[in-house]
Design a protein around this nucleic acid. Structure first.
Length: 234
DNA sequence: CTCACGATCAGCT
DNA sequence: GCTGATCGTGAGG
């Protein structure tokens, strides 16, 4: 049960060389793989957000151009951009387009497929007593990767993975082919500055059939905020 | 150097 | 649904 032996072939570089909003949808259903052997963990991506780059998207880290933190987004497509927010949580993005404009897709949530016990152990190691601990101990596996910070905890994604090539199988995080999702819904992205001009853009894509879609304060679930659409709009 | 601000989360009400 | 925690990051002096 733990540690499947099947080879998970990485997605090719060309998969990531496409418009960022299109990639946000294309990543739904794909596999996020971390670790080798008994430490291997595999998850099915169910929620993403597109971040437009320099001069395009005021909510994107790369809006004003490259900085030391976000330089990976300005490099080739198919690299992990991993950053810390609130000083405590880390989030993982995948660079796209590769045209030096600083665009990337944030991976917000996933469903655990393999290495679930290790994911759970990683999450529990950071939790005190409380409802979340009881939920995870009681088999609430859909909660393991439900949110960009939680996902990185469960998969041991850290700042050390910033710049990692997600098209290369190995110990580091990489992307492998899954199955396309049946439906894709779009809403505004979560947690943005409400004064930002791009706050209403429907660049958050998710699989409405998944229980693992995140429900962060504010604009999280499909049931709140503007009604999800089938196509992105500005 | 200082300072303001989060692409969040866990725990409560 | 609401709030405090807690610090990396980038901009400015």
């Amino acid at each position: 049960m733990s540690g499947g032996t099947g080879v998970l072939e990485p997605l090719p570089r060309g998969f990531f060389e496409r418009p960022v909003v299109e990639l946000a949808a294309a990543l739904l259903g794909q596999r996020l793989v971390r670790g080798r052997g008994r430490a291997r963990r595999v998850a099915r991506i169910v929620e993403t957000e597109a971040y437009g780059g320099q001069g395009v998207d005021p909510s994107a880290h790369g809006f004003a151009g490259p900085t030391e933190r976000c330089r990976v987004m300005f490099g080739p497509a198919g690299r992990a951009y991993v950053y810390a927010t609130q000083g405590r949580c880390v989030c993982m993005n995948v660079s796209t387009e590769g045209d030096g404009r600083g665009r990337a897709v944030l991976i917000r949530a996933a469903e655990p497929l393999e290495g679930v016990a290790l994911m759970r152990a990683r999450r529990l190691a950071r939790l005190g007593e409380g409802p979340t601990r009881r939920l995870l101990e009681g088999g609430g596996d859909h909660e393991l990767l439900r949110g960009p910070g939680k996902l990185c905890v469960a998969l041991d994604v850290t700042r050390a993975d910033d710049g990692a090539d997600v098209t290369a199988a190995g110990d580091g995080p990489y992307l492998a082919a899954g199955e396309p999702v049946a439906r894709v819904l779009w809403t505004p992205r979560v947690g943005l500055n409400p004064r930002s001009a791009s706050v209403g853009w429907r660049w958050r894509a998710f699989d409405p059939d998944s229980r693992a879609v995140s429900a962060t304060r504010g604009a999280g679930r499909a049931s709140r905020g503007p009604r999800p659409r089938r196509c992105p709009a500005g």
